[in-house]
Design a protein around this nucleic acid. Structure first.
Lengths: 338, 338
DNA sequence: GAGGACGATTGAATCGATATAACTCGAATC
DNA sequence: GATTCGAGTTATATCGATTCAATCGTCCTC
């Protein structure tokens, strides 16, 4: 097994000092054209690739940014990550993606990893409301930006969508098409997105004077969980069933849709369904799914820009909160029956 | 801004030497219970988190594994990554995921990043057939395992599904339901998966004595590309259109399905469609999509295990090739019209 | 009570790139 | 001719964790 070449080897071959090699690599100081050429050739012939661990140790910070999402299996988050990645590439930084799967322990373990790596910054959609670990990272000098979560708690910049408003939009839509017995299907209420969307939905109901919202809670917001929740509804006497469902995300909604359709329930005639996120697959579902859209890529871009500014120290002293507006995408699954 | 504590600070507070702190951190040598307790307390009070760059510099290798996939937006690859991640976690390694987006330049840039990081190993679904960079990584001592790609070219272990067989299965199914004018919609033929699936499909046709397969090539295998390809078919006179479509992956197939349905083409009556990968959303599509299933999680697990064995040196000297069998999932989109 | 034996602990050397102060050498200035 | 200047280059200290040979105690054995 070949031992990798280091700056010293490159310096020896190019007949210069290691300092000069470093200057070529980082273009920090002027290097004479002839010298630079010799160094580059030496790098080429030795197949030298800089050891980033050494660089990082000296510089004290990585060129990587950590990102924690709630579910990599959810296209919403992968879209978000792509927006972030593209923007980070502009300042030649790269992304390490961590998947908490809505689990506090997994989140903790990834944050520990990120801290060991001395990431340059952190983008996070936290599982819960506690921010101890985040405070600690910041005290260490690592900027943190909250994603898909308003930064009211703790002082962090944030990029978010008004989830309460989104919940209102969804439920108002169900009311508008004449539904009076809606059910909310969501993940753990500890997840802020879920509780905010629920609150938004409830606020509409109380104003419209409709019976309180029935709530079905599942620990994890996957399509499987949606199917499972639908089974619970199917076990009810048809007269007891809701006439409409608001699911906290599209994966849940698609799972519900699939289970209901399979059981012979007509969507939207018997039960209307609206989801959240407007992932790509919503529009192409068996019954095209109504949803509340979030401007995913734009959010990713905004988050990366906020973070980059904080890392580079070009951010002001104030924490920024970029809030996007959700938007109703009405489709077949909430059509008014004819 | 607080300066982070290091082993020296911990050692001072616990009244031991730095060597002992290291022994506690890595449990390499026996440490007296009392001493260990003092060290752990010091770590706790100082909020010490090991600087992995320093560790890595000394040890010469990272605890991270790099993984290059063709498309993070494709659930097939995120499922694969989750299988890998779960398995790596067993040996407390973590994953850096890189998305080449089927682009050789992006792939190159990620591989460079991985090399700078001195990743412990690499899992890759390469964009093309060239293996120069991979050879180089291996020469440096970094094990490489090919994923979703048979390792015939270059000597690498691999985990794959028999793509040619998958192509055969798909097209045989179309022939079985009586279709005689199939069209193949795929990504760039430089992508091995695409060309193999195509070859498999063609082999069925020549045996069945059916007219050669029409091929539509798109540079990228996304749902948008699928819609775009469908437009091309829709521009044809109906009598010229195919009676069936085999798409190289489900994203393409779902895009095609959506565009055709919107244009009033009946699926499967006018045109039958079969995809590839059997991603979750295939079954819940407007017309449930037939597909060729790959055992995604199992592949991820197998790949991670092969790689781990090579990293730990417990692998034999022979390169291993794990080949999974694809499986037909027949659904509504290829039903025989009644 | 001397000599091992063994477990626990120490401390200096080390990994590779970068930062910095010092230096060289030729040109420009007076 | 001495001095200043500055671009280019060099040599060395440094970052923080790990390693390993050396050392320290303590108990055991004869």
């Amino acid at each position: 097994m070949m031992v990798a070449a280091n700056v010293r080897d490159v310096a020896a071959l190019a007949r210069v000092s290691v300092g000069t090699v470093s200057n070529v690599l980082n273009s920090t100081k002027k290097v004479a054209p002839g010298t630079e050429k010799r160094v580059l050739e030496a790098i080429e012939t030795l197949g030298f690739v800089r050891n980033d661990a050494a660089r990082q140790l000296r510089v004290g910070q990585s060129r990587m940014v950590g990102m924690m999402v709630l579910d990599v299996g959810n296209p919403f988050f992968t879209d978000l990550a792509r927006g972030v990645e593209d923007t980070l590439a502009l300042s030649s930084r790269s992304l390490i993606l961590g998947n908490s799967a809505e689990d506090a322990a997994r989140e903790e373990s990834y944050l520990h990893l990120f801290e060991e790596q001395r990431v340059a910054g952190l983008l996070i959609t936290p599982v819960s409301r506690t921010t101890d670990r985040l405070e600690r990272l910041r005290r260490r000098g690592t900027p943190v930006v909250l994603v898909d979560r308003f930064g009211g708690i703790g002082d962090f910049s944030s990029v978010s969508v008004d989830d309460r408003r989104g919940g209102q939009i969804a439920l108002q839509h169900l009311v508008d098409i004449g539904r009076v017995r809606p059910t909310f299907i969501g993940g753990s209420s500890a997840v802020v997105q879920v509780s905010e969307r629920l609150h938004g939905a409830q606020s509409v109901l109380s104003e419209a004077g409709i019976a309180p919202l029935r709530v079905i809670e599942r620990p994890y917001m996957s399509a499987d969980a949606g199917r499972d929740a639908a089974e619970e509804l199917l076990a009810l006497d048809p007269s007891e069933r809701p006439d409409s469902i608001f699911a906290a995300n599209d994966l849940l909604a698609l799972g519900v849709l699939q289970a209901l359709t399979r059981a012979g329930v007509r969507v939207p005639d018997d039960i209307a369904i609206i989801g959240y996120d407007d992932i790509y697959f919503a529009a192409s579902a068996a019954v095209p799914l109504s949803s509340v859209r979030q401007p995913t890529r734009g959010m990713g871009k905004a988050a990366a820009e906020l973070l980059t500014a904080e890392i580079d120290g070009t951010a002001g002293s104030e924490f920024q909160h970029v809030v996007f507006e959700p938007e109703l995408m009405a489709r077949e699954s909430t059509r008014v029956p004819t």
